[in-house]
Design a protein around this nucleic acid. Structure first.
Lengths: 197, 197, 197, 197
DNA sequence: TATGAATGAGCATTCATTCAT
DNA sequence: AATGAATGAATGCTCATTCAT
């Protein structure tokens, strides 16, 4: 039965790769089967339809990000360390997964993912938001984050900046590690010139 | 000739609406024609193919954002006012346009948009990035933005935060105008508690 | 009213040229109109349909061959001269018309020409056969053609040889006028070596 | 693999029948499939397109005539016997095949057959001409055919007469076997009255 | 259980024809 | 009378899915 699951995952991996590479409609069941090294009919022994494969692949994707964020949030470390960990995401083999914000990911597939899965996925995303907000609130408790700013807005800033920064990093050839420090400093202190007395 | 262009735009609008609503593959030429109030054949008098309609609609979309940003950048106002204007985008009927970052938009359609148009679109995006960076540099000249932080990283922060904030706003039922102030303050000063002497 | 007929013929000529060049299905009404220098709608002022244009063009073609043969048959000249005239057909601007035997022509279009016109055309062809047979019979009366051979079979030989000879001539670069004599001799005396006494 | 070829041929036969009966454009893929007793999609498992089916059917047709002629030419029999065999073609189930001269056949489809196949077909035809000319030259060697007449012109006469004679035979209800003798005599000795001494 | 040959619903596209100007 | 923009019926082809082996 475990062997069955291994095979299933191989198919799902083929599918994920091809969906990412060529999109849903340009990916044919035959391609998936070929890449997974099985017959076309076999796919239907493990999945009800192409749609189901796609749905599962999507859930898998969003789940992986969710788990990643959840794991970080549950570490017994400081707010700052959690923030750093979140930003390192793309250095752990998850790069390609993180190239797209989960919400944008879902939105771009909203006409392809089965309706009920869209709901599931948004639940994951909503949960992720809560987790991020929890991290922010840990920062407030630690006296690092200003209590007066609503946590959801701070989460916005963190997530948005993080996403754009990822994109920048990916295309930047002269990316330097110190850029990471700069981005943290930016989040902490903003970009305005501080008037010294 | 102008009349011809009006009709053309009506068709393009129908198409845009349906593509946005149902995606490329679920949108049939017949649907587009029906919604535009013309015959199926008429579409082919104005466009070579479904693909061409889609490409044009995409370009139109990215162009509209590009123009919006460009216009703001060319205003004879302060850095701060330009920033404010960028953030108001979604209050001018462009909301639905701005619901997605252009890069994510292009990426989500990268398997559908014709290759040559993907290139065109990325040129627009690249130009938009430059425009935003220019605005940041105006801020530096005005002595408002810290010169030591690379402008592209600041742009990241602005664009990313802006995007996420838009999403938050759209789903927030109790959105208050003061939230706008909060987000600006966040960008300017970050979220860290400032130690007073 | 005569002017009307001139225009009509211009359209028919365009059509004939294009049908011959590209075939029925690759010839669009728009092409015919364009070549005739009129609007697409105008074609429908003069003809009921594309089919009608095609039918008329075909009839015109077969009629032209029929008339050519008929005219020759009615000349007040000897059998031999009539035969020579028939063979000269392709030297009078009718070459391209004669490149195909009318029967083959009709057969190759039997699925395109309207049924009632196929009938008409075969009547023309049948009449042409009779005319050729009449010419052969004139030859018999003149004591030149052997009376014992059925005239229709002789007509076969003349028409078939003539057709193939035309094809040969068209592709032959070193065609010499004396070839014409050879072919006549062949028809008259066959190809067998004659045993002299 | 052989089974696959049998099926393929069944489809090709359906297609050939329908193309012959109704022409290329009036023959729908669905009709071909229906007649072959397979699904529409199956046709595309065996052929790339309707065009490919048509091309193959044409090649098959011209090939069959070519082979027929080639086989006769390679028999170890006299010139006369080869000629007789050629004229019997239509008594061996090839009738319907021979109803049209291959050149006329190709010409009538020149706008439908793929260009590269037209070339292939004309190569077959050209080869057939050479074969016929070889037969004529055998006749010369045997001392039966007059050496002074160019062989290609004699071939013209044979092929042309043969073609027309076939047509006549097909429509003749009172066709008699002795007609065959008459036609041979005609080819050998022509139609002119011979002056006896 | 695994397979891939067979299937046919579904859709983009073409082009003869119409009709308002 | 002449036009050409608008039309939609008609059809080739794709590919997810089935099922006999």
């Amino acid at each position: 039965m475990d062997e069955k699951n291994i095979k299933r995952n191989e198919m799902l991996d083929s599918a994920r790769f091809l969906f990412k590479e060529n999109g849903f409609h340009k990916t044919k069941m035959e391609d998936i089967a070929l890449r997974a090294g099985v017959g076309k009919g076999t796919l239907y022994e493990y999945f009800r339809s192409k749609q189901e494969i796609f749905d599962e692949a999507c859930v898998e994707y969003v789940k992986s990000i969710h788990n990643y964020v959840k794991e970080i949030s549950e570490l017994d470390v400081s707010f700052k360390d959690k923030l750093v960990s979140l930003f390192k995401g793309n250095q752990n083999g998850l790069e390609e997964e993180f190239e797209k914000n989960p919400v944008d990911y879902i939105m771009s597939y909203k006409n392809i993912i089965s309706e009920k899965f869209v709901k599931t996925l948004f639940e994951y995303v909503s949960d992720m938001n809560k987790i991020i907000i929890n991290i922010v609130e840990q920062g407030k408790e630690e006296g690092i984050v200003i209590k007066e700013i609503p946590s959801d807005i701070i989460a916005c800033s963190i997530v948005g900046t993080m996403g754009e920064y990822f994109k920048l990093k990916m295309q930047k050839k002269d990316y330097a590690l110190k850029d990471d420090d700069i981005i943290f400093n930016l989040l902490y202190n903003g970009f305005s010139v501080k008037k010294e007395i």
